[in-house]
Nucleic acid binder design. Structure first.
Lengths: 130, 130
DNA sequence: TCGGACCTTCACATCCATGTCAGGGTCAAG
DNA sequence: CTTGACCCTGACATGGATGTGAAGGTCCGA
């Protein structure tokens, strides 16, 4: 698959696909003519990268943790305590973000529901005791 | 409370506190001498802003949703369908991010556990059937 | 064989969140 | 009254993620 195909399949611009490669997030082969050749599994991988990026995780960190997100048993060979610290740190940060997002997501949902109640002709001052 | 105090209490630099004000995320009073005067409730608000920012939500969006994250019933007066669309959109995006983070967080935890198993002298090829 | 649609690299531009510095006021304690 | 710690504004700098455009190569189909 070449870059345009992957771009269409993931919604990520070719520019960004090259950038991810540059940042060491993906490894890409070349055809004889110099064109990049992308393996199928990269579709998922690129989607995962996008998700992490959208969640505020910088490429530098993604590069660190990405190898640990699949096939875990395969790579545990290098039981580097430094890496371990990084991973634990990142996991904790993720947990914190999840909590924050969950909290705000709930609040938004409540607000949306309140709007709907207000729109569908309900008395505006009626409310669930939160 | 003045800017340095709030900065210490939130871990957010004065520069950023002014920036948030500039972006309309917080409303700040002034003393007679021109110094900013911050209300106590801004400590929580600024922490919330940081959390959302760290989770990849840009100030523009935060400005949109922040008024809806507290005191919901108070503000439902303007049942603007445009706003509703924005809120639903953002809530959905948040849910997606939560799912992504949760997924990766779990994978990280598994990997960390596997590392620990490998370090504490376990046979490296033993594994839980995932 | 030509044209269009793709690819390459490289460079410059942009937006956002942030840092940092300069030039200058405020104020309280010594 | 001076000094140091705070505050103000404004500007310039930076790093990361992204867009865009130029100059050129590849390849397929009319």
């Amino acid at each position: 698959m070449q870059i345009g195909d992957l771009s269409h399949r993931t919604g990520v611009s070719p520019r960004m696909l090259r950038y991810y490669e540059d940042q060491g997030l993906i490894t890409v082969g070349r055809r004889e003519n110099g064109f990049r050749e992308y393996d199928d599994y990269l579709v998922d991988r690129v989607r995962k990268i996008r998700g992490l990026l959208d969640s505020g995780i910088p490429t530098r960190i993604i590069a660190d943790i990405l190898p640990c997100l699949n096939r875990e048993q395969v790579l545990v060979v290098d039981a580097d305590p430094q890496l371990r610290a990084v991973l634990i740190d990142q996991r904790d940060k993720m947990e914190e973000r999840i909590a924050i997002l969950q909290h705000n997501c709930d609040a938004l949902s409540r607000y949306i529901k309140a709007m709907e109640r207000a729109m569908t002709g309900g008395r505006p001052d009626e409310q669930a005791s939160s």
